[in-house]
């Protein structure tokens, strides 16, 4: 089925030009990176902009590099770029683990990490992991630059802290200390391409408070702060993990929809938490499952 909207299309070559266009008389603008969410939304009339601003010709937005102890992920960096990056594999393999579970190769070649957190659907894969990694979102507008902690980024289904006239240029992900362990676990109906019914990201850094976040079980990805505190206080032995699993129902608020019931999501969050914490702890100790091994 075809798109039946009248649209203007801009493909600015620089950030200045982009911001210039965005500041022109208020139009209903949609920013386009990979388009894997924007295009079907246009087709289904979920959004009805009158112009598209394609960012793919803007210089510098595709950078993927380690800068000052953090991974800089430009807004045009695709999931496939992450999977193919030696730096990611060496320093942040859990990011590639998550990226490898997103949709399909054909989507990952196009879909971007930043686009994923900008479309901000509840089942987005990048959200929980970026929360667990303490990422920061960098925005620019004619007023200047601004940084938002990813904890403050998600405001609701398909709603984020972005303001009109702003562009997310990149996210930065502080690299966990060596000796860290992390895991991303995801529940889906098939083992192939599917959306997450529920997912969890776990990041364990030596001596630091564990960071854990769930996805697809609340209107936005959510940090599991009580579980983090409990594990921080009690360590990662079997008893502590049992206790943490007991807190899951307090941390998430899943709904019943066509993809799963509330009850199943809740129960699987418990299983995923246990498996992901165990895998992350194993990885920290050097003997966990290879990244990419499905935990569910």
């Amino acid at each position: 089925m075809t798109i039946s909207l009248d649209l203007a299309y801009h493909a600015p070559a620089s950030l200045d030009e982009t911001l210039e266009i965005l500041s022109e008389q208020a139009g209903r603008t949609v920013l386009l990176a990979g388009g894997t969410d924007v295009v079907p939304s246009l087709r289904d009339d979920l959004i009805s902009p009158n112009r598209i601003v394609d960012l793919k010709r803007v210089e510098g937005l595709g950078d993927l590099a380690v800068i000052d102890g953090a991974l800089h992920v430009g807004c045009l960096v695709t999931f496939s770029d992450l999977i193919g990056s030696p730096a990611v594999h060496a320093r942040l393999p859990v990011l590639a683990e998550m990226a490898g579970m997103v949709a399909s190769v054909g989507i990952r070649n196009r879909a971007t990490l930043v686009g994923n957190i900008c479309s901000a659907v509840p089942s987005c894969d990048a959200g929980p992991l970026l929360l667990a990694l303490g990422a920061r979102v960098h925005l620019v507008s004619r007023e200047g630059v601004r940084t938002v902690d990813v904890d403050d980024w998600f405001e609701g289904p398909r709603r984020t802290a972005i303001r009109s006239g702003e562009v997310v240029t990149h996210v930065t992900i502080p690299l966990p200390a060596s000796g860290h362990g992390a895991a991303y676990a995801r529940l889906s109906r098939t083992r192939g391409e599917d959306l997450a019914q529920a997912c969890v990201a776990v990041v364990l850094e030596p001596g630091d408070r564990p960071r854990i976040a769930f996805g697809a079980v609340a209107p936005t990805p959510v940090r599991a702060r009580r579980i983090e505190a409990l594990l921080h206080a009690q360590g990662l032995d079997a008893g502590a993990i049992d206790a943490a699993v007991g807190l899951v129902a307090e941390e998430v608020a899943p709904i019943t929809d066509v993809r799963a019931t509330r009850r199943y999501r809740l129960a699987m969050c418990e299983v995923m938490l246990r498996r992901a914490v165990t895998a992350a702890a194993g990885r920290a100790a050097g003997d966990g499952p290879v990244h990419g091994t499905p935990l569910m």
């Binding site: 109906r189 098939t190 192939g192 599917d194 959306l195 066509v258």
Partner: peptide
């Protein structure tokens, strides 16, 4: 294992796409 057409209580199909009518893939 995966498929099922599901309707709401007004007879509207809830999963009319391959996003939510799940066919087995090469990994299944």
């Amino acid at each position: 294992l995966y498929e099922e057409l599901r309707f709401d209580d007004g007879g509207r199909l809830l999963n009319p796409t391959l996003t939510d009518y799940k066919l087995p893939t090469a990994s299944d």
